[in-house]
Write a protein that binds this DNA or RNA. Structure first.
Lengths: 250, 250
DNA sequence: CGACGGATTGATCGTGCTCAAATCATGTGG
DNA sequence: CCACATGATTTGAGCACGATCAATCCGTCG
């Protein structure tokens, strides 16, 4: 069997105990923790649309690198929006094999469930600040306001679209095609001035693409040697030939 | 590269031209085609909940084996519910590699999109009868009735949950684990009297599980020789040891 | 009965995994 | 400021799982 990984929640618990002043990060206080004073929010803000509509209270909270935000099958108390940082959502098999379903970047909403439990776990990839609202208050607002109900549907449908595309990638694309798709996705979502600063390590990328970290590294090296991309540090990447990359992503 | 399949929509066009009396099946008449007089509907009927609520018109339509119901990126005019038969939803890569995202069995709703186009194509696996309503009328109902809006969200969330589980399977499970998961899923969804009659061929199963049809066949043969399952014809399967199967699905 | 598509089984191949070592980057304490 | 420790990344060598190619078997339907 592939991927007999022993790693599990690496040093999460260590960081977690130091991370926040006192409280358990899984039950954030409504009075926000010492979070950054809300920097750059994205152009379109689905959270604002909802909270604006329904007059909900949104508070802020911060997580340290590798800190767990919520676990798989944990009660879903809050819905989150990334203000700064990055988050990974994932599922684990009993032996530690991990599938990352999505990366959440500034502006993204995550942790929205229809039912009362989280179907995937979520961890901060780097130090991260989020905005959050209680799920129950959203549900309540949706019960009276069709616009809110519609917005919740929109967001879930967006997640579904991503998952459908990702199933095709995981089931049928080659390693190189997966990496090409990944680079184009990240380029679209977080490129600034033609350059992207990846928040996640090679292992995260591998677990997102259904590959090992070595295979990801080899694919990136090959693209580098072909001049398709340039590095300035392993996580600072500039795409030099998007067209070529698009032709590789099948 | 794996899976250089040339097959594409096999004999769909042939069947299609014979299939329905006159009309293009992609624009079914509101006056139903000669469909079976609505046999066994499932216990919980999400369609009835909606149509009951909103007083929508639901008509019926039939498709022959391998007939296309709608194509990928085609405008989404209708939402469907399987009355009898079975349907596959899938995406294709340009070279014909196919990923089946879901099988739809009697009672299942499919083709519900948030946007105006279908993100996956759909084909009848065997002769199939569906109930259908216009997407626009659903949208309209959702605009005034929160219960309908909520129901649409529920259904999309159900699809998302399935997709999330399937990403884990496609990204991280071994061939045997995938087949075990598949058998348990089908057992749950279509077993009658401890036996299941699979509507789909080995290739469909392979394209659902991200495997080749040969690998699926070998896994099933191995399970057979281990006494975990019994055959009566390649598609009539009885599970003899569900516990064992569960322990294999990781 | 024969023809056909679907399924099984066998033999071999290749992509991506595993194991291992070297290199690079980052941060820490002297 | 530098030396070192640590983790991340790259690179290499070899292997295994599942793919490919091919032949047979089986069941169904004309």
């Amino acid at each position: 069997m592939y991927h007999l990984a022993i790693r599990r929640k690496e040093m999460v618990m260590l960081n977690q105990s130091i991370a926040n002043s006192v409280v358990n990060p899984n039950t954030p206080r409504t009075a926000p923790s010492p979070a950054a004073p809300s920097p750059a929010a994205p152009a379109v803000n689905p959270f604002a649309e909802i909270t604006g509509h329904a007059g909900l209270i949104a508070s802020e909270f911060s997580y340290k690198k590798d800190e767990e935000i919520y676990g798989e099958d944990e009660p879903s108390e809050y819905v989150y929006q990334v203000i700064s940082g990055a988050v990974r959502s994932y599922k684990l098999l009993s032996d530690g094999r991990r599938q990352i379903g999505a990366f959440h970047l500034p502006g993204d909403v995550f942790g929205l469930e229809f039912g009362s439990v989280h179907r995937l776990a979520a961890e901060a990839i780097i130090d991260t600040t989020v905005r959050l609202v209680k799920r129950r208050s959203l549900e309540q607002a949706a019960g009276t306001d069709v616009a809110v109900a519609r917005k919740l549907w929109t967001m879930t449908a967006g997640d579904l679209r991503h998952a459908e595309d990702h199933m095709l990638l995981l089931g049928r694309k080659t390693a190189m095609e997966r990496v090409a798709t990944f680079l184009l996705e990240m380029d679209r979502r977080l490129a600034v001035a033609g350059m992207m600063a990846l928040p996640m390590c090679r292992r995260d990328i591998g677990d997102y693409l259904g590959l090992t970290l070595e295979t990801v590294s080899r694919a990136l090296s090959q693209l580098h040697s072909q001049g398709v991309l340039g590095f300035s540090g392993a996580r600072q990447i500039v795409l030099r030939n998007r067209q070529r990359l698009r032709s590789m992503d099948a």
